[in-house]
Amino acid sequence: MKWNRTALGILALGASAGLLLTGCSNGSTPGAGSSDSGAYKIAFVQGVAGDEFYISMQCGIEAAAKKAGATVTTQGPAKFDPTLQKPLVDSVVASKPDALLIAATDVTAMRTPIKAAADAGIKVVLVDTTVDDPSFAVSQISSDNVGGGKAAFDAIKQANPDGGKVLVVSVDPGISTTDARVKGFEDATAADSSFDYLGVQYSHNEPATAAEIVTAALQKDPDIVGIFATNLFSAEGTATGVKQADKADSVTIVGFDAGPAQVKQLQEGTVQALVAQEPATIGTDAVEQAIASLKGETVTAEIQTGFTILTRDNLAGEGADAVYKSSC
């Protein structure tokens, strides 16, 4: 009995040591070549780990880096949370990459840690999101989010030409991209008097929260005709909420982004349209700008990538490439 417990303890220690070792051996491929040998070391910090948008971006980055002969390491916090991302960025900076591609999780909170990377001589490219006063970055690459928001409104209008009540489910205030999508949508709604804008609700990037918000909103305003969900998790939750409220027939949901879950919902008819960004293009552009900057060539300070509207009709054809990947 006593011995058994001791054995168990050894097992537990052994197991954790084993994990450490496998972890370490996995990681024995950091860019060995230093910058002067030509093999640039690029670090990519995602907004959140495990999100198809960032994975697709990672795919674009890795493909472009391979072409340029550079190595890439990718890290992401477990949640879209600046207090989790900052330590990660600090550690990445300590690993002294030649370039840092980063999707900042907060415009203010992440500014100083990212600027510290630039101050340490690392070329910083801001991807998708940005920060306050991003003058230290060599380039910023993002989708035209205001335009994306307007496109989402157009999709709703197409399905509901007579107008009606519309709602926005966003992530959290203070994220430059989603704020811009909301603004684009808001501006477009304001310009069309037949639509009644019910405002924006924040899901904190939790599908469950988004579902609760939507069910509650439909309780209050059963005649909502359209909901614009500004990101992946919000759209996922919105669709669930509409289904729960049994309003799938009368509400047009337009999602932003095109992860496998969204595409499946589009195929099933739960979501009527998706505004797909081009994360792989953002990633490719980011690598190109970073390497251009490292080589001392001309750099474009700001690049806006486009978007594709996905509907059930074009999904099989021209829209297929726009679907996000869950692995490269």
Partner: peptide
């Protein structure tokens, strides 16, 4: 962080 980071500290 220079912000209240309401969504943070989760």
């Amino acid at each position: 962080f220079n912000t209240t980071a309401i969504a943070g500290q989760s």
